[in-house]
Amino acid sequence: MDTPSEHVAVESIEIGDATLPPRYSSRAPGIDFAQEVTDDGYLWWYADAISDDGQQAMTMIIFVGSVFSPYYARARRRGPQAAEHHCAFNTIIYGPSGRKRWSMTERTGAQLNRDTHSYQLGPSRIDWDGHCFLAQVNERCTPFAQRMLGSIRITPSALTTHSLQLDQHGRHHWHPIAPIAHIEVDLPSVGAHWSGEGYMDSNQGTEPLADGFSGWDWTRARLASGDCAVRYEARQADHDPHRLSLRFGQNGSIASEETQESTSLPPTGIWRVARRMPSTKTLPNKLLTLEDTPFYARSLIETSFNGEPGTGIHESLSMERFEKRWVQTLLPFRMPRRT
């Protein structure tokens, strides 16, 4: 699979009747957990899911070069750092009535083993067998060290074979691996056994995330038709926001839709993180905050996309907030490091 430095941007790629926007590039199909990551860079795989009854949710982020790590940020202030020294296998489960369990332990490269089809960090791993991803989670939750033990199975409806350059200089890329997927969560130690609709993607950068972006807003939603809508607004210093509005079909097709300016949403209740809904003027019918941190918000959202209702996950990120030293001193409470 190509690394960002090997991507060849094209003006447009036609898929059926759809034309993709500029800054797309083709890539080999499938998955490669062994991609090279440059010093100070990052690579992550992200998955989320909402249960069929709408009462539970899950996010999983697997890092080589944890972009939200206070330890990685502190080390970079001393000079260039190997991304593999700061890895994490983060899993968060959202249950009924606001119940939440999270495991977000950072580990060193000495505990990392990866090849094209597998990634193992400490006692947890994820494997791709050509049909589905199977994550086997064996972690401790913080702050009370409750065991999080079990599996998460991600079965894509199709794999995409395109990446998108997110910044002006080609240092940050986004690969929507499986915008439409079926996910089965079986984590009995935290009382989570359910299935639902899900999503999986990957991001890769050759520099720290804060060097490329001041922040972004992102949302993905499963539409009533079964398609997936994705809205992105990535903000960069001294540049206009980079916006995209995409629709993914269950067969892997991609259609570009007209982008618009974002709409302000209510900030989070505790940390007052600003939230915006990219490329739509429609206010959501539902906005349920799942994560309210000093620099990041995750929410469950119900709204319409070009007139079609959809339910999904919304994220707002402020890298300007993350770069504050006082914010980084708070994070080890949630993100312990084991060497």
Rank of each mutant, 00 (worst) to 15 (best):
S304Q: 13
I301A: 08
R276N: 01
L287Y: 08
L300K: 14
P284K: 09
I301Y: 05
G310T: 13
P294D: 05
R298Q: 12
V327N: 01
T303V: 14
K286M: 10
T311L: 13
V327G: 03
T311Y: 00
S299H: 00
S318V: 02
M319G: 01
L290M: 15
R276S: 07
P284I: 11
R321Y: 08
F322H: 08
Q328C: 07
F322K: 06
N285D: 15
R325P: 02
V327W: 03
R321E: 11
P284R: 05
R298V: 10
Y296W: 12
G307A: 11
E323K: 10
R276P: 01
T289S: 06
A297R: 03
G312V: 11
S304Y: 05
G307C: 07
R298E: 07
K324Y: 05
Q328G: 10
R276I: 04
L317S: 04
S316W: 02
H314A: 14
L283K: 14
E291H: 04
G310R: 10
P278D: 03
E315G: 07
L288N: 10
G312K: 08
R298I: 10
F295M: 09
H314P: 03
R276G: 00
R321A: 14
L331S: 01
W326V: 12
E291I: 11
R325W: 14
T289F: 05
T293N: 00
G307V: 08
P309F: 11
E291G: 03
E302A: 14
F305V: 09
L290H: 12
N306E: 15
E320A: 13
F305Q: 06
N285W: 03
T311M: 12
A297C: 15
L317C: 14
N285R: 12
L290V: 06
G310E: 09
L317V: 15
T282V: 15
K286V: 13
E315Y: 06
W326K: 08
M277H: 08
T303I: 11
G307W: 13
E315A: 06
D292E: 06
E315W: 07
Q328N: 14
R298C: 10
F322C: 04
L330I: 10
P278L: 05
K324F: 09
T303G: 04
I313C: 04
K286N: 11
A297G: 02
S299E: 04
S279M: 07
W326D: 01
T303P: 07
L331G: 00
E302L: 11
L330V: 11
S304T: 15
S318F: 04
F305E: 03
T311P: 01
F295E: 06
M277Q: 12
T329E: 13
E320D: 15
S318K: 03
S318H: 06
S316G: 12
M319R: 01
P309L: 13
N285C: 09
H314N: 00
T280A: 10
T311N: 03
P294S: 05
E308I: 15
F305L: 10
T282F: 07
S279F: 03
S299W: 00
L300W: 13
K324P: 00
G310F: 11
G310N: 09
R321K: 13
E315M: 09
G307N: 08
T280W: 05
S299P: 01
T329G: 00
L331F: 03
N285T: 12
E291F: 06
K281G: 07
Y296A: 00
W326S: 14
